[in-house]
Structure formats: structure tokens, C-alpha cells
């Protein structure tokens, strides 16, 4: 039973994907889609969900939406404008390099969410992850300084603030 309860967020996800992909809300799809969602949720719940209360927490979900809006507007705009400026600048001021960036989260989803947020914004790419030392290796288009504080403040801090509220 607990496995099915833990599967609830996955069932919702799989059901939405099934209905959207099928592009139909006929009885046939609503019924079979639910069966399929139930099955895929049951099969994958042990892999994906360890704490179902976190996954169903409405406050975390609201933070996820806020983060989504922040990320897609402010964070992306800042990163894009910075890279566009460097491309269009006559002297092309780049100083590329790979830097170590510490992070302070423990949850798998948090680590991945921050890493993918970094990679998806132009100018920074996570190339390696050291879980033992809690360090991302990030390729940075303009290395201001390689010390942990500078890299953390410039690359990880903004994302981590939100991701902590969502996944930690």
C-alpha cells in the first residue's frame, strides 16, 4: 500500500503525459490512461520517490512554480544578455575555464536541479560532479576568480536558494 501512496505523484505525471500525448479525452483514453499511469507509478515508485509528503506538499509546488517563472525570465535573461554582450563586443571579452563550485544540498533532485539549471543558462556548463567533496566542476565563459566563494556566489547561489525550498 505504501508503495502505491508513494506512486501518487508519478501516477499524476504519467497520466498527464499519457493524455497530452494521446491528444484525446475520450472514455477509452481516460480509463486506459489511468490504468497505465497506475501501473507505471507502481513500477517506478521505489526508484523515484522516497518521501511522498514532500512530493505532495503544496508549498513546495508553489515554490517550484515561482522558481520556474524566475528561471525562465530573470535568470535566463541575465545569462543570455551577458553572453550576447560578450559575443557582440568588439574585443570579445572571454576568459573561459573550468572552476570548482561548492554546493550545500544533499537531496539527489536538488543536486540535479541545480546542475541542470546551471547548464541550461548560457555561459556555464556543469561538466562533472564530485558528490564526495560536494563540488560541481563548471565550465565558465568568464572566470572572474577561481576561489570557492566567488564561484558559489556567481553560479550556484541564486538557484540553490529556490531549489532548497523545493526539494530539500
Amino acid at each position: 500500500m505504501s508503495r502505491l501512496v508513494r506512486a501518487i505523484p508519478i501516477i499524476v505525471l504519467a497520466y498527464v503525459v499519457y493524455i497530452v500525448f494521446s491528444g484525446s479525452v475520450s472514455t477509452y483514453d481516460l480509463v486506459l490512461g489511468f490504468v497505465v499511469a497506475l501501473l507505471s507509478g507502481y513500477l517506478t515508485s521505489n526508484l523515484l520517490v522516497s518521501d511522498v509528503r514532500k512530493a505532495l506538499n503544496i508549498r513546495r509546488f508553489i515554490w517550484l512554480i515561482i522558481y520556474g517563472i524566475y528561471y525562465l525570465t530573470i535568470a535566463e535573461f541575465k545569462a543570455h544578455s551577458d553572453v550576447i554582450r560578450r559575443i557582440l563586443h568588439p574585443r570579445m571579452p572571454i576568459n573561459p575555464g573550468i572552476v570548482r563550485t561548492p554546493y550545500n544540498v544533499v537531496n539527489d533532485y536538488s543536486i540535479v536541479a541545480i546542475a541542470n539549471s546551471i547548464t541550461n543558462t548560457p555561459g556555464t556548463v556543469v561538466v562533472h560532479l564530485d558528490e564526495g567533496k560536494k563540488i560541481y566542476y563548471v565550465h565558465w565563459i568568464y572566470v572572474k576568480a577561481p576561489d570557492p566563494k566567488t564561484t558559489y556566489d556567481n553560479i550556484v547561489k541564486d538557484f540553490e536558494r529556490y531549489v532548497k525550498k523545493i526539494f530539500e
Binding site: I10, L13, A14, Y15, V17, Y18, F21, S22, L32, G33, V36, A37, L39, S40, G41, L43, T44, L47, L48, D108, Y109, I111, V112, A115, N116, V126, H128, L129, E131
Partner: peptide, 24 residues
């Protein structure tokens, strides 16, 4: 790396839903 693993794991339920939808 963990990044690839977590994203791959997340794809499984969606992949099951889509593949089964194609079959049905």
C-alpha cells in the same frame, strides 16, 4: 554521473505512458 541517472530515472514513467499510448 548522478545528474544523468536522476534524469534517466525520471524519464521512465513518462516513457511507459507514451509507449503504452502508442500501443493502445
Amino acid at each position: 554521473s548522478k545528474i544523468v541517472k536522476v534524469v534517466t530515472k525520471l524519464l521512465i514513467p513518462m516513457n511507459i505512458a507514451i509507449a503504452t499510448s502508442i500501443a493502445l
